[in-house]
Amino acid sequence: MASSTDGKHVPHVVPLWILIGVLAILLILTWATVAVTSFDFGSNMNLVVAMVIAVIKAALVVMFFMHLVWDRPFNTVIFVSALAFVGLFIILALLDTGQYQPTMIPGYTAAGGVVP
């Protein structure tokens, strides 16, 4: 967090080895996420594994490339709440559609256009 008493802005410079190191990890994880698709972990575990890897990659980008670890905490609050609201939206919509799908009558269709 860059701040000083006289209100001048002092930048926080990320060391180069961090940037390059993060990229290296990201590339390895990209390779890993492709590689694991040839294994079958059983019911939906492949999705879980893929998402865990994606979340780790995303976290690295956000924390280091996007400076969030050194930034003001409130920016983290904003970003995390955005994710939380997306999660809320997805979970409730998924819960609902999963519930009503079985009750749909097969073959019923809104014709969209005009029924002759």
Binding site: T109, A110, A111, G112, G113
Partner: peptide
């Protein structure tokens, strides 16, 4: 959102009311 094309019209309402 269009059942005729395999979609789900109720999902639109979730989107809209969110």
């Amino acid at each position: 959102f269009d059942p005729a094309l395999g979609g789900d019209a109720v999902l639109f309402q979730h989107f809209f009311w969110f």
